[in-house]
Design a binder for these strands. Structure first.
Length: 329
DNA sequence: AACGAGTCCAACCGCAGGAGA
DNA sequence: GTCTCCTGCGGTTGGACTCGT
């Protein structure tokens, strides 16, 4: 694995250490000459990962700048924190964003905007970085292709009345496949939706030692370290094998939807048995999405011509939808 | 097989807010 | 109250990878 070493001077402002009991390997105060040091940048090496994991296993996380020095890592504290939170943490969940997660992201983004960390709090195991990347690469791409500002009302309405109902419909269909595979395999759009499954998977998928925590992790991570301080209070059961194989694109489904209000949910969770997504005060229940007759025709076209639909899943319909919105305005 | 375009994601950067001296 | 430093957040970018020609 290659990395780019680079000598940089830590500026006199942020990033400079001292004054809070910082220590070096000998528990001594950091001296001035240590401020200017050779810092690594770029991709992390396996050795660095091990060092960071082991140090956190013994000393816990936090105080990232001093942690970096005490661990002997030639990285900034920010870099260590980012590496840990986004990649090395035991409960980081990797792999495709599921349909359920997509729906949740769309809904939460419509509510909070680019508050990625806040949105990430409601998707167990997902990092703000991952959600941000998903939004930029998928959602904003669609907006760009639609020649539509991602912050415009038209685009938000398209998300709300077209993509989110599509996702909800597909989630329902997925649940049907899971619960009754033989019946579901005979017809319906969801039987062919694996066509655009992303092939961009960097890490091997290995079995996580904890129940319901199967995700992509670096293969060199020692199992015992992955168990550090894990109480596994998070519910990961939403990812069924079939839904993980589905495309990450916002496709299919032609239904209107409604959001049921509920006041008894403090934390996000996904209840697989009911396919109900709870976050904060609201509940999205795909089973409550009402059929929208105006889009029935697209559904029929989809079923008659699956291949064409999946190859170009949103262009025609979304453009029509945007035109319709413009006409209504 | 080679090349270019597009996609995806890990990592970096700057900024803001908070905490301690 | 002010200064310094740490942490966390959102935006951006570089490069690895895939795919089409």
């Amino acid at each position: 694995m290659e990395y780019h070493g680079q000598k940089i001077e830590v500026d006199s402002g942020r990033g400079r250490e001292g004054g809070r009991g910082d220590c070096n390997e000998n528990n001594q105060e950091i001296k001035e000459e240590d401020v200017v040091m050779e810092l690594r940048r770029g991709p992390w090496t396996v050795e660095e990962d091990f060092t960071l994991i082991n140090f956190i296993a013994h000393h816990g996380e936090g105080r990232w700048n001093s942690l970096s020095r005490c661990a002997g890592l030639k990285r900034t504290g920010k870099s260590c924190r980012l590496r840990w939170l986004n990649y090395l943490r035991p409960d980081v969940r990797r792999g495709n964003i599921t349909l359920e997660e997509q729906l949740l992201i769309l809904e939460l983004h419509s509510r909070w905007g680019n508050r990625w960390s806040k949105i990430a709090q409601h998707l167990p195991g997902r990092t703000d970085n991952e959600i941000k990347n998903y939004w930029r690469t998928r959602v904003q791409k669609h907006a760009k292709q639609l020649k539509c500002d991602v912050n415009s009302k038209q685009f938000k309405d398209t998300m709300k009345y077209l993509w989110m109902p599509r996702l909800a419909e597909r989630i329902q269909a997925t649940a049907a496949v899971t619960s009754n595979p033989t019946a579901a395999s005979s017809s319906g759009p969801t039987t062919t939706t694996t066509a655009t499954t992303t092939t961009y998977i960097q890490n091997q998928e290995i079995q996580h030692p904890l129940p319901n925590m199967n995700h992509h992790v670096p293969e060199y991570l020692p199992i015992q370290l992955m168990n550090i301080e894990k109480t596994n209070s998070l519910n990961y059961s939403a990812t069924s094998a079939s839904s993980d194989n589905y495309s990450s694109d916002l496709t299919d489904g032609c239904y209107n939807f409604s959001i049921n209000q509920s006041n008894n949910q403090d934390h996000s969770q996904v209840n697989q048995s009911t396919n109900q997504f709870c976050y904060g005060e609201s509940t999205i229940n795909p089973t409550s999405y009402n059929f929208h007759p105006g889009f029935q025709g697209f559904q029929e076209v989809d079923q008659q011509n699956n291949t064409q639909w999946m190859e170009n899943p949103w262009n025609i319909e979304d453009v029509c939808f945007l035109q319709q919105l413009n006409n209504d305005m």
